[in-house]
């Protein structure tokens, strides 16, 4: 089994070290707070009809921090994300074992209310997926689904969510036109707004910038950065520079015989500057993967 170097505690041990959170010019990631786990993953193993995709992953994801998951394609990062909001339920023959605890509740328990869980854990995909409805309906329909009926409240929430993602000024005059008429970057921000409107605790992001042009990508990246502190963000990215810029923590996944494993997890700075595992070192320096 791959040795997992998990070094969550060094964050705290370094709290007294005055330089620990000076992240340097590239690492603009916000300073980390107390490492207080919002999600605890223990021995998570995931397989698709017998082919295991993720093997025995354990890690804590800290509240209010941005955690980046890096690694080459097909190493189980997306599978990992999907097991945090039980999107794995949608995949036939997908078996999940182990424990994923959010606020001390095992979310894979049989009596879990999956819809309530997904309201608390939002998810953004690589390809923006606004519904073929108006901008307004895109945000308000999920709210109605979760019991918000009051019109005035719906309108307030619509405006707040769009303001949160910096889209309000761009679309306030055409809230009733189709969301599909927006540009790719706008669509992605709308999707983030749609998720934020439900006031989730956790946001899962699966390569949210990789389908966007560089300018839109920068806007979305700034937006993600602005979410830290308020939300617990787990982001899968292939863009190492982006991970360095925005993440507080980073986990490095690597696949052996198509089975993904968590090789190393730690402070973002540590993963990039002093990785403990040679595979991590090779990957972040661009030598592997």
């Amino acid at each position: 089994m791959t040795q997992i170097k998990q070094t969550p505690t060094h964050c705290c041990s370094e709290v007294n070290n005055s330089n620990a959170y000076t992240l340097g010019p590239i690492e603009a990631g916000p300073p980390c707070c107390e490492p207080d786990p919002a999600i605890r993953v223990q021995n998570l193993t995931l397989s698709y009809g017998g082919q295991s995709a993720l093997d025995n992953v354990s890690l804590d994801i800290y509240r209010g921090c941005i955690t980046a998951l890096i690694g080459p394609s097909g190493c189980g990062k997306t599978s990992f994300l999907s097991s945090i909001n039980r999107l794995t339920d949608l995949i036939p023959n997908c078996t999940v074992t182990g424990k994923v605890e959010i606020e001390n509740t095992d979310i894979h328990a049989a009596d879990m209310d999956v819809q309530a869980l997904r309201r608390r854990v939002g998810m953004i995909f690589q390809k923006p997926n606004p519904f073929p409805l108006s901008i307004r309906r895109n945000i308000q329909m999920p709210l109605r689904e979760h019991g918000v009926k009051d019109r005035a409240l719906l309108e307030t929430k619509l405006q707040t969510a769009l303001q949160d993602v910096g889209l309000w000024d761009e679309v306030k005059d055409r809230l009733d036109s189709s969301a599909l008429s927006l540009s790719g970057g706008q669509q992605q921000r709308l999707c983030i707004a749609r998720a934020l409107a439900l006031q989730p605790e956790i946001l899962l992001m699966d390569e949210p910038c990789s389908a966007l042009d560089p300018l839109s990508s920068a806007v979305v990246e700034d937006l993600i950065l602005s979410l830290s502190g308020r939300y617990t963000v787990v982001i899968v990215t292939h863009n190492l520079a982006q991970a360095r810029r925005i993440a507080n923590y980073a986990g490095f996944f690597w696949a052996k015989e198509r089975t993904g494993k968590l090789v190393e997890f730690g402070r973002c700075q540590q993963i990039f500057e002093s990785p403990a595992h040679e595979l991590t070192a090779a990957y972040v320096s661009g030598a592997r993967g």
Binding site: R86, D89, T95, V96, T97, H108, A109, A110, D111, M112, D113, V114, Q115
Partner: peptide
């Protein structure tokens, strides 16, 4: 241990 996921939505 494999779990069957029961959707609670009536």
């Amino acid at each position: 241990m494999s779990r069957s996921h029961v959707n609670k939505s009536h």
